[in-house]
Amino acid sequence: MIRAKKWVAGATAAVLALALVTAGCGTAKNENNAQGGGGGNKTFRVAMVTDVGGVNDNSFNESAWNGLQKLQQDKGVEVKYVESKNDADYVPNLTSFVKDGYDLTWGIGYLMGDAVKEVAKKNPDAKLAIVDFDLSKEGLKNVASVTFKEHEGSFLVGVIAGMMTKTNKVGFVGGMEFDVIKRFENGFKAGVKTVNPKADVVVVYTGAFNKPDLGKQAAASMYDQGVDIIFHASGQTGDGVFNEAKERRKAGKTVWVIGVDKDQSLTFGTDVTLTSMVKRVDNAVYTVSEKLLNGQFPGGRVLQLGLKEDGVGIPETTKQNVPADVLAKVEEYKQKIINGEIKVPATDKEYQAQFK
């Protein structure tokens, strides 16, 4: 039996802190419709702007906000957020916090990369940070970047899907098709094919991260094709995947969903959640913000977190549905990835080179 502590997917703030380098400190401010609560230390304020998925996406936006709320509780700082309804909101929302004098303004998600770059260039004295986008090569000393090796964690849930499918058909539902989500897809497919070369992997992109109805439609089509396990990387759109799975379960069908970013069994239940590929956005946001609070902001740098750094992985609740022998195989592959024995494909080209 694998010890439970090996399945705690989160990175501690201390582990992340060791991976960060130090730099300078600065200031940045709030928007009228921003939500949140003030802390005791009014001289230090941190804000975040969500992408179109919104703060209650049951995914990485919500995880980032949880990290800031913990920062407020632990350090007494003021934290706020504002939601973006469309991509045209990104620059105005970021600019509003910057102009209002917030010490640090976060852009959450790959879709906000260009907006953070634009605002940072126009406001060189402000401090900004971005999740899932690398701006380290832009020469912006006022921006800290955090990225994740999603393909490594996705390989592990692919191993689970490949070993546990009863139909030899599994599925992947992505939001929008860009580098971050392709890492999820290719890592997942690689894990499935490594342990079950005969399995088919059906891939669908919905084109949105905030459309549960599209997720539900995609899941219904896949389940109708005989897919019995779906891994989604689609933000709030994935809620629809879970909803379809729940309906099928009620009708007596054995289907599963693999969650993303958070332990989604805590939201949707272990009856339909086989496991989740967890990204510790909360701890990353907490640690970078704390670094600035301590005068050690990693501006101009990128922090990349994978299995070795415990930045991605699977949650302890996985053992409720996944047998011990499968977990043992997952642990075996995890160590091989950490040791460099396996290089997980992140792009289509890398995947095709390994699995022709």
Rank of each mutant, 00 (worst) to 15 (best):
I2D: 15
K5S: 15
K6D: 12
K6R: 09
G10M: 15
A23G: 15
C25L: 08
T27K: 15
A28F: 06
A34L: 03
Q35M: 08
G36Y: 04
G40W: 01
N41I: 08
R45S: 15
V46R: 15
A47E: 13
M48Y: 08
V49D: 11
V49T: 06
V49K: 08
T50E: 07
V52G: 02
G54E: 05
D57R: 13
F60S: 01
F60P: 00
E62K: 08
S63W: 04
A64R: 08
W65R: 11
W65S: 12
L68S: 03
L71T: 06
D74W: 06
E78Q: 14
V79M: 09
K80M: 04
Y81E: 12
D87F: 05
A88V: 07
Y90R: 01
P92E: 06
P92I: 07
N93C: 04
T95S: 13
V98W: 00
K99A: 06
G101I: 03
Y102W: 04
Y102I: 02
Y102A: 07
G107S: 10
L111H: 02
G113V: 00
G113P: 02
D114K: 13
V116T: 08
V119E: 00
A120P: 01
K121Q: 15
K122D: 09
K122R: 08
N123T: 13
A126V: 03
K127M: 06
D132H: 04
D134P: 12
S136W: 04
G139T: 13
E150L: 05
E152M: 02
S154W: 01
L156N: 13
L156R: 10
G158L: 01
T167E: 14
T167R: 10
K169H: 03
V173E: 04
V173S: 06
V173R: 01
G175H: 03
V180W: 00
K182H: 04
K182N: 09
N186M: 03
A190G: 02
K193W: 01
T194Y: 02
T194P: 10
V195P: 00
K198H: 14
A199P: 00
D200A: 14
V201E: 11
V202N: 08
G207C: 01
F209L: 00
D213I: 07
L214G: 09
A233E: 08
S234M: 14
G235M: 04
Q236G: 15
Q236Y: 12
D239Q: 03
G240I: 05
V241E: 00
F242K: 07
N243Y: 00
N243K: 13
E244S: 05
A245E: 07
K246L: 08
R249I: 05
A251L: 09
K253I: 12
V255Q: 03
D261P: 05
D263M: 03
D263R: 01
Q264H: 06
S265V: 03
T270Y: 11
T273Y: 08
M277R: 15
M277L: 13
N283D: 12
A284S: 02
V285M: 03
V285E: 14
E290Y: 12
L292E: 11
N294I: 03
P298S: 12
G299W: 02
G300P: 02
G306R: 07
D310N: 14
G311T: 12
G311M: 10
I314G: 00
T317M: 11
T317L: 11
N321S: 09
A324Y: 09
V326P: 13
L327R: 11
A328P: 02
E331V: 07
K334F: 11
T347R: 09
D348P: 10
Q352A: 13
